[in-house]
Design a protein around this nucleic acid. Sequence first.
RNA 1: GCCGCCUUAGCUCAGUCGGUAGAGCGGUUCACUCGUAAUGAACAGGUCGACAGUUCGAUUCUGUCAGGCGGCUCCA
Length: 676
Amino acid sequence: MSDVASPPTRQDLTPGDVTETEATTTTTVPTTGADLYGDRKDVVVVRVDGTLWDLDREIPGGAVVEPVTIDEPDGLDVLRHSAAHVLAQAVQQINPEAKLGIGPPVKDGFYYDFDVAEPFTPDDLKALDKAMARIIKEGQTFRRRVVTEEEARAELAGEPYKLELIGIKGSGDDAEEAADGASVEVGAGELTIYENVRGAGRESETVVWKDLCRGPHLPNTKILGQGVKLMRSAAAYWRGSEKNPMLQRVYGTAWPSKDELKAYQERLAEAERRDHRRLGTEMDLFSFPDEIGSGLPVFHPKGGVIKRVMEDYVRQRHIEEGFDYVGTPHISKEGLFHTSGHLPYYADTMFPPMDLEGSEYRLKAMNCPMHNLIFRSRGRSYRELPLRLFEFGSVYRYEKSGVVQGLTRVRGLTQDDSHSYVTPDQAPAEVKHLLNFMLSLLKDFGLNDFYLEISTRDHAKPGKFVGSDEDWAAATKVLQDVATETGLELVPDPGGAAFYGPKISVQAKDAIGRTWQLGTVQYDFNQPEGFGLEYTAPDGTKQRPVMIHSAKFGSIERFMGVLIEHYAGQFPVWLAPVQVLAVPVAEAFDDYLKDVVAQLKAQGIRAEIDLSDDRFAKKIRNASKQKVPFTLIAGGEDAEAGAVSFRFRDGTQENGVLVAEAVEKIVAAVRDRAQV
RNA sequence: GCCGCCUUAGCUCAGUCGGUAGAGCGGUUCACUCGUAAUGAACAGGUCGACAGUUCGAUUCUGUCAGGCGGCUCCA
C-alpha cells in the first residue's frame, strides 16, 4: 500500500507525544523491518512513515518505523489479504483457465473474484481448502517486485481484469473510486507484482505464482497457519456494476490462530440460533404465506402481541412528546407522488399503478405526501408550529425479488412515521428533540449502544438531489450540529441522502455486536415547496415551513426482527407474548393455579396455565422452549403455604413466594420493562 | 433484477439409479401421571412447490414459473 494518503501517523508527533505501547523507531541508516523486528513473531509488517511495508523491504534512513502485529486491524487486513492470494493461487492451480479479479480483505475475512466457466460447487470449495492448506504448510515466501506499466502489461497479458485495473490507474482515476477493493491491487503509486516463492533463498527456489498487487503481505504463507477457512461462493458483478460481467466470488475467513477461527465460527452459529426467521417459526410469531406473496408477513397471535405492545407504547410516547396521531389510506392517485417529487426518483420501487375510473392509483410507498395534505387542509398559524403528525403508516415497496429477506427487508411494512412542520428557526431544536426522543425510545426497548450516520448529497450526482447548494448546506449544518451534540460517534455517508434533503440515521448495536440501521431524521425543504405549504407569520405574511421526517424504528417489522435477534427470543417481560405460564405439579393443583392466573389476568398480565395431560417434567420443558419469562409452579408445599414457585428462563428458581407477592413482582417487572 | 443452490407431512429431515413414499417432533384419542427439559400406545396427516415436456409410467429426467437460502446490485 505504497504512497497512498493514509490516516494521521505518529510521524507527526514529537517523541514525547507517543503514548501508545508500540514504540516507534527512527532509522538512521537503511534497514528492513525484518532486521528491526525479526525476533518478534507477531510482527507481520511495518508502518513506515505511516504506510504499511513488507518486512523485507529496504527502509531508507530517517524514516519513522513502527511494528504492526498480526492481531491489530492493519495486521489482520494483511493476514486476510495474504489469505486471498493463497486462495487465488489454489484456484489457478486447480483451474489454470480461471481469470483473476480482485481479492481484498473484508470484515472477518477476505474474498477473491474469478472469471471461471463453471461456478464453484461446495466440493470445489473443499478441494480449494485442501490446496490452500498445502500452500500454507509449505511456507511460500511473498516477494515484492516493482514493475513498469509495460512490464506489468506483458506479464499479465493473460489476465484481462488485471489489465483493466492497470488501465484505470493509467487513466488517472482514483483506483479506490474505480472499483471497491481495486486499490488493493493497484495503489496510487508504483505498480508492483507479488510472487509466491517456493524454497526462497535456496538454489532450487521457484516462483510458483504471481499477482499484480500493491501489498503488503505476510513474509510467509506459513503464518496463516490453521486460521483460514473458505466459507461460501457467490456471484458478484465485476467492479460492482450490474452492467459488467458476473464473476464468481469465493469468501473466506482468516484469523491469527485456530482458536480465533473457532470462536468466529461459534459467533456465526450463535447468530444462526438467533435468526429471527427461525425463531419466528419456532415461537409461532409470524409467517410469509406464499399465497400472499414474497415479503408480505402475517403476524400470528403471539407475534401480534409483540407488534401491538410495541405500537401501543410508541403511540403513547409520541402523544406525550407532542405528536398528533393521524391516519391515512394505503393507496392514492399517483398525482400525489408527482407533487411530492417521489415518482421520478422511486418509480422503480413503487408497485405499478392500477387504473380505476380513469385515474391511476398507486400503493403508498411513503406517508409524507398525505401528511402534507393534512397540514394543507386549512390555514395554519405560526402559533401551531411545531405541528407534529404521527402515524403507523402501512407502506408498500416493490423490493427486487433478490433482496427480500425475513422481516428486515419486506414489501409491506409499517412505518412509525412522523412529520414535524416547523419554522426554519425552530428546525434545530426540533431535530434535537426528535433525535433524543428516538434514542430514548430505543433505550426503552433495551438497545443502548448507538452511532449515527449522516447522509449528505453527492455533488458528483446532481440529478439525484433537488434544491440549491445553499439550502443543502444549511440543512446539513443543522443535522451535523445536532448530531455532534449527542456525543455519539458520527459516520459520514456522502451521497446517501434522500432526494429532498440530508438525513441522520441511528445505527444500533445488538447483544452480539451486530449493527442495524434503525430510525432516521430527515430535513426537508423541498416538499413544503412542492405542496405550497404555508403558515401565517406574526406579521401576517405567508411563510413556508420546513418539514422534518422521522421514523424512530424505521419499520415495526424490521425492528421486531432486530429485537428477536437481540434478545434471542427471550423478550423482556413487557414484550413477551406470554408473560406467565402456570404449571401445576399435578392435576390436584389445577384449580389453585387457575385462581392465581385469574388474579394475574385481572392485573393485565398475559398469563396462561398448562392444563394438558403431559407429565410435569414435560410441561417444564414446554415452558422452557416457549421462552416464557415467568414459569409459576405450584404443588402441595406451595398450596399449603398460599405460595407459588418461580422458575426463570435460565433454570434458576425462587420457591415459596406468597401469591400476592408473586403478583406484585410480576406486575412490577412489566411496569419497569424489566428483563428477567 | 443478476448468479448459484434449495423446495418431500404443521416443523426438521430421510428416500425413490423412473414403477405415486418414511422417521422424529408436533396434532388427535386412550391409558398413565404429586416437584423441575421428552410416560407409553394407537390413529390421523403428503397430487413429493406449480405448470408443461420426454416416457407405457414422472416425486425422480428436461423446461418455464413461484417461493426460500447465500451473495451481487439496490434500499425514500
